[in-house]
């Protein structure tokens, strides 16, 4: 393919020069189901994540020439050309899919039959978009987001060829903290768990809204990354984040028997008493489920309403009184005479 005149060379992964067309922001259409499909690829953001080492064809494997017909859906579990360095085997997301299949989010029940509303259960793309690195620069004990030349220089003194140092540095430092900002994780869960129709179908409480009312949720909304999001409490301890189990499973992290261990993990409330697990996280203020919280809330609301609206009315009337100062239905008999004079029956000065 002739590339003469291009201001920048096409990226290495782009053998077929896919960006010749896919760099255009308007490359889009409305599909047969009325969905907006945008075929634009932001090269810079594609290069900011682990998939940058893949060629387009590694995932979009049915495309072998351009121009091409509508492509098939990508299967995340297919093997790609990347070799996983520790085991020296070709990389695939199959093991993640296997884990997901044993979790509460599997669309099949234990016998392998589809669960009711099985179409609601998530696949890879329901929670994941193109992953992006969130590298950290560590230099002289100072940790900050991003990647500085000084921080990576220690890798690059030996690993000079290609992007090896960058790839590993960004991959590892991204994995040393949350690879997604906690609020984004919560929004991922909220896509289904906050949807009222979904909750009705599966008989679930609005756990996202109730979580957001906890100190955990509020600190995250204010930008903390040290506070637990959904995954920190709900993933089976020591397993990868795709293994979330239902509360009634004996190994579930939120099973009553395991709850206090989950709160008191050495990374969180290490010194807390076992009774910390009695704290109710997802409080809906439902009268039957959470009577204590419900009646306390009612008490405070009533108190606030009475006190505040009493004084509000008083001040409003006082202001109104100032607008018509001289008017009154009955004039006071004493007038504005000092009351001691009336009491002492002294003549007016």
């Amino acid at each position: 393919m002739a590339l003469t005149g291009f201001p920048e060379p096409a990226p290495a992964g782009d053998e077929l020069n896919c960006v010749l067309c896919h760099k255009h922001r308007g490359l889009s259409r409305i599909d047969e189901n009325g969905k907006f499909r945008l075929f634009y690829l932001n090269q810079e953001l594609f290069d900011a994540g682990p998939h940058r080492r893949n060629k387009c064809k590694d995932c979009h494997s049915d495309i072998d020439r351009i121009p091409h017909k509508p492509a098939k859906k990508v299967t995340c579990t297919q093997q790609c050309h990347i070799v996983e360095p520790s085991g020296n085997v070709k990389f695939s997301h199959q093991s993640i899919a296997d884990t997901l299949a044993t979790s509460v989010h599997s669309s099949l029940d234990a016998e392998g039959n589809p669960k009711p509303h099985h179409e609601d259960y998530p696949g890879c793309k329901d929670c994941h978009d193109q992953p992006l690195y969130r590298p950290l620069s560590v230099y002289k004990g100072e940790v900050k987001p991003g990647i500085t030349a000084r921080a990576i220089s220690r890798c690059k003194s030996c690993h000079t060829s290609g992007d090896f140092a960058e790839d590993f540095y960004e991959h590892v430092t991204s994995r040393l903290h949350k690879t997604r900002f906690p609020m984004e994780t919560i929004e991922v869960c909220a896509k289904c768990h906050q949807d009222p129709d979904f909750r009705e179908r599966h008989e679930l409480d609005d756990v996202v809204t109730t979580y957001k009312q906890t100190f955990h949720g509020k600190l995250i909304a204010l930008g903390s990354e040290r506070t637990p999001d959904c995954l920190d409490c709900h993933v089976v301890p020591g397993e990868n984040t795709h293994l979330i189990e239902a509360q009634d499973q004996p190994t579930s992290s939120v099973n009553k028997a395991n709850l206090s261990a989950t709160c008191r993990t050495s990374d969180c409330h290490e010194k807390a008493g076992a009774m910390l697990a009695g704290f109710q996280t997802h409080v809906t203020y439902d009268r039957d489920k959470y009577p204590l919280q419900f009646y306390m809330l009612m008490f405070f609301k009533a108190l606030m309403a009475v006190v505040l609206y009493f004084f509000l009315t008083l001040i409003f009337l006082e202001l109104l009184r100032r607008l018509f100062p001289r008017f009154a239905f009955f004039k006071d008999k004493e007038g504005n005479t000092p009351h001691h004079r009336i009491r002492n029956k002294k003549p007016e000065a």
Binding site: A272, F279, L292
Partner: peptide
């Protein structure tokens, strides 16, 4: 919270949360 849960049940924290936030609002 970590220290008192050795002596008091966790639901006390739920109550404390409501007391603290709503009284503060008032």
């Amino acid at each position: 919270r970590d220290e008192i849960t050795h002596f008091l049940p966790g639901i006390v924290l739920n109550a404390a949360y409501i007391m603290h936030t709503d009284e503060a609002l008032l």
